[in-house]
Simulated scan of single mutants.
Amino acid sequence: TLLRCGAPIREINTVRRHLSRIKGGRLAVAAHPARVITYLISDVPGDDPALIASGPTIPDATTPLDALEILERYSIDIPEAVRSHLVSDDTAPKPHSPEFGLDRTIVQARACDALRAAEASANLAGVDVRVLGDDLEGEARELGGEHATMALTLQKDLKEPLLILSGGETSVTVSGEGRGGRNVEYLLGAISVLQGASNIHALAIDTDGIDGSEDNAGAIFGPNDWSRVQALKLDPATYLARNDAYSFFEALDGLIITGPTRTNVNDFRAILVLPKSM
């Protein structure tokens, strides 16, 4: 329900931590007095260890009442057992508890690592790069539209190829019954602005290989695809209204399907902007 409301991941994980017997540091408490060493691959904006997988071995600074406030703010119908638990629970390990004194946390990989690798590869190919950040959040379709507008603006005075990179984790407020995920919705938001603009290509994927709950990692789109959009009578606004970006890109044969990658450093988005004269 929180996902359908478009809640950001930090709010979703706050609720998760206080409705779990292992999250929010409880797994580490179960292991103590053994020393716990945690190796993490970050799939959350900002790389806060307490948010990654809801922090099974990391103490939690939030409270059960914080979780309750989030649920009430989105007007979610809360089962009475959940409400009672959140009102009365005081079992969450405290951040400065001596139990965690000898523990160690190591973040092995982050979204910024993926963006740096892409930047290095692009530079080797002679392409300039602009990195917008590895922790971008917000409504997916709106961010896609903003990035498309940026690409069009930059292209006006562009002399050399430019790659616009970004990472993070967007949200989708679900109002329709279509198939999709935040990366294909981001890309569909971008297409709604680009509408076949020349020499601009874009892709958006989830690095775990699964965009939301579908079988695709994301999708890809180029300027030559716009004529096919028109030929197939695919109206981006209609597909956005029913949150059906998956079907849109499926019709274009633009889905990127990798299968699960068994790792996850969150979303990866790239817009290649070429000078109009190329």
Rank of each mutant, 00 (worst) to 15 (best):
238 T>V: 13
268 F>P: 04
81 A>W: 07
189 G>Q: 05
54 S>M: 04
138 G>H: 02
186 Y>L: 10
132 L>T: 08
213 S>A: 15
243 N>P: 05
119 E>T: 06
192 S>D: 14
176 G>D: 11
264 N>H: 14
212 G>P: 09
265 V>L: 04
188 L>D: 06
226 W>M: 07
115 L>Q: 10
50 A>E: 10
244 D>H: 14
31 A>L: 15
145 G>V: 08
13 N>F: 06
68 L>P: 00
252 L>Q: 07
175 S>H: 12
122 A>Y: 04
159 K>W: 01
266 N>G: 15
250 E>P: 06
61 A>Q: 15
263 T>V: 08
263 T>G: 15
144 G>N: 08
196 G>I: 07
50 A>S: 14
252 L>H: 05
126 G>A: 07
246 Y>V: 06
89 D>S: 13
275 P>L: 00
155 Q>C: 07
96 H>A: 13
191 I>F: 05
240 L>I: 12
75 S>H: 08
254 G>S: 03
209 G>Q: 06
142 E>L: 13
225 D>Q: 03
158 L>H: 12
264 N>A: 13
75 S>G: 00
13 N>D: 07
16 R>P: 00
60 D>H: 10
132 L>V: 10
133 G>N: 13
120 A>E: 14
73 R>G: 01
43 D>W: 08
47 D>W: 08
173 T>Y: 11
109 A>S: 10
257 I>N: 03
179 R>S: 03
106 I>W: 12
79 P>L: 03
123 N>H: 09
144 G>Y: 02
108 Q>R: 12
18 H>A: 09
73 R>P: 07
201 H>M: 00
29 V>Q: 14
145 G>C: 09
89 D>C: 12
221 F>L: 12
204 A>V: 10
249 F>H: 08
262 R>C: 04
261 T>S: 15
